[in-house]
Structures are given as structure tokens and as C-alpha cells.
């Protein structure tokens, strides 16, 4: 079995390499022309002269993710939320476990380096998330980057250090729910703004549309926030960061926390 698998991979490797050498240059190279749908996206992502169609964000990917196909992203976030709920359900019924005596975590050098780098990771993550509508990045990217910091602290300082600092599962669940609620509110905020004025508006609407003259402001005090995109990004940032942190907190729970319960059941 081992050799068959190896053989298949090596054969695929040789065939693939030959393909690249011979025919790929003629057939597999992507077309130089931009497709018509992509042309519209690029044309309308930031276009102050077409205020009824544009997203007012120079970042085409974020425009697509949170505006042109915003509903997909909302559902993706909901799926991720349900996955976290599932993992919390798996980690239920944990008895209270005490901190073991003795020195925990890795050496002082590693701890000092982590103290510096964790702050830098959070800063980079915040920059990725808050500038998600201007430069490559966004809420998910920023949240995933920020989640590296608690993971480093969990491994290098130990599980108990993070809990003592107040980063508990319940707090993270609260932050995560806050993020998801934020996404939900921003999704219908234009509709709620339009309701008292008697104008009709759409779910996940950002800028004014041809038959709906209301929208969130693209600029606040001269700074481009691209309407809903900035709020979506910051909500997603908290939701993803807290979601990953919950999973890490759960998988680093010592096994004796589960074993104790089994012993109680046996008695």
C-alpha cells in the first residue's frame, strides 16, 4: 500500500512536470482578457461618478465579499459560528480543575520574546482588519492573525495563565456573539434607517441604489470607511478571533478535567 501510494504520487509528479514542459504553455495559461463580470466589479468597486452602483471601496475583493455577494459571507460566518457551537458542545461537562504546582510553560527567553511578539501580532491583525476596505485583508484575515497571539500564549505561558488574565471561554463566547450580532445589525441597518423616512431599501445594502436613495456615508470626517464594509470587517474580526480562541482554550484543557468526571460516574 505504501509503495503504491508513493508510485502514484511520483507518476503524477512526472506526468505533471512533462505537461508543464510541453503543452502547458499553449493550453493551460490563463487568458489575458478580463471577463465581463470581472470588468464590472473592477469598474464599480470604487467609482464616485456612479454613486448608485459603486461600493466606494478601492479593495475589489472586500467589495465583492461584503457587498456584491454579501449574503454568502453572512452565511459563511453563520456556518463558522455553528462549528464553534459544536466544539463547545463537545467540551461540555468539564469539572473544575486546579492549577498544577510548579513552573509552567517554556523558558524565560521564549516568554520574553512572546510578550513582545504577541503585541505586534495583535497590532498587525488590527491593521489588516481595520484597513480591510483599503488594502488586501479584511475581517476574517485579521481575526485569524489575531488568534495566533492567544495560541502562542496558551502554549508558551500555559492554559492557566490565559484564564488568570481573564480570557475565559465565556468572555470569548460573549465577544463572538457580539461580533455576529454586529454583522446582523449592519446587514439591516440601511433598511432600519430607511423605514422612518418611508423609503424602501434592501438587506445588505451599502451605498444608494437606483431605486433606493439611502445608504451609509462612504466618508466619516474625510476618512474613507466604505459604508458598511468597515463595520462588517470589525464585527467579523471579533467573531473570528474569539471563535478560534474558544477552540484553542477547549483543546488545551488537561485530560484530567474529563477523567475526573468519569471516575465520579463509576462511583
Amino acid at each position: 500500500m505504501k509503495h503504491v501510494l508513493g508510485l502514484i504520487i511520483i507518476l503524477l509528479f512526472i506526468i505533471g512536470f512533462s505537461l508543464v514542459l510541453t503543452v502547458a504553455g499553449n493550453y493551460i495559461l490563463p487568458s489575458q482578457e478580463i471577463r465581463s463580470l470581472a470588468k464590472y466589479y473592477l469598474y464599480l468597486a470604487y467609482n464616485p461618478w456612479h454613486r448608485n452602483f459603486t461600493v466606494m471601496s478601492p479593495e475589489a475583493v472586500t467589495s465583492i465579499v461584503w457587498d456584491f455577494r454579501g449574503l454568502d459571507t453572512v452565511f459563511e460566518t453563520a456556518v463558522f459560528y455553528l462549528a464553534i457551537i459544536g466544539s463547545i458542545a463537545l467540551g461540555r461537562g468539564i469539572v473544575k480543575y486546579s492549577k498544577p504546582s510548579g513552573k509552567l510553560g517554556l523558558s524565560l527567553i521564549v516568554k520574553t520574546v512572546t510578550r513582545i511578539s504577541a503585541v505586534m501580532i495583535i497590532a498587525v491583525a488590527a491593521s489588516i482588519a481595520l484597513h480591510g476596505h483599503l488594502t488586501p485583508g479584511g475581517g476574517f484575515q485579521g481575526g485569524a492573525t489575531a488568534a495566533v497571539a492567544p495560541l502562542l500564549i496558551l502554549i508558551i505561558f500555559s492554559h492557566y495563565y490565559l484564564l488568570e488574565k481573564g480570557v475565559t471561554k465565556d468572555l470569548m463566547l460573549f465577544l463572538r456573539s457580539l461580533g455576529l450580532t454586529g454583522i446582523g445589525i449592519v446587514a439591516i441597518i440601511v433598511y432600519l434607517m430607511a423605514l422612518p423616512q418611508g423609503i424602501h431599501a434592501y438587506v445588505l445594502q451599502n451605498q444608494p441604489k437606483p431605486d433606493s436613495s439611502i445608504g451609509l456615508p462612504a466618508y466619516i470626517d474625510g476618512q474613507l470607511i466604505s459604508g458598511t464594509l468597515w463595520f462588517f470587517n470589525i464585527s467579523e474580526f471579533f467573531a473570528v478571533m474569539a471563535g478560534f480562541t474558544i477552540v484553542f482554550l477547549l483543546i488545551t484543557i488537561p485530560e484530567r478535567a474529563f477523567k475526573k468526571e468519569e471516575e465520579v460516574e463509576r462511583q
Partner: peptide
């Protein structure tokens, strides 16, 4: 955009 999500998830987490 994919690089920024791929580095923390696939190389770190």
C-alpha cells in the same frame, strides 16, 4: 487576500 488568510491559518493555527 488569500495569502493574508493562508499564512495565519495554514502556517500558524
Amino acid at each position: 487576500d488569500i495569502v493574508l488568510v493562508y499564512i495565519p491559518v495554514a502556517v500558524g493555527l
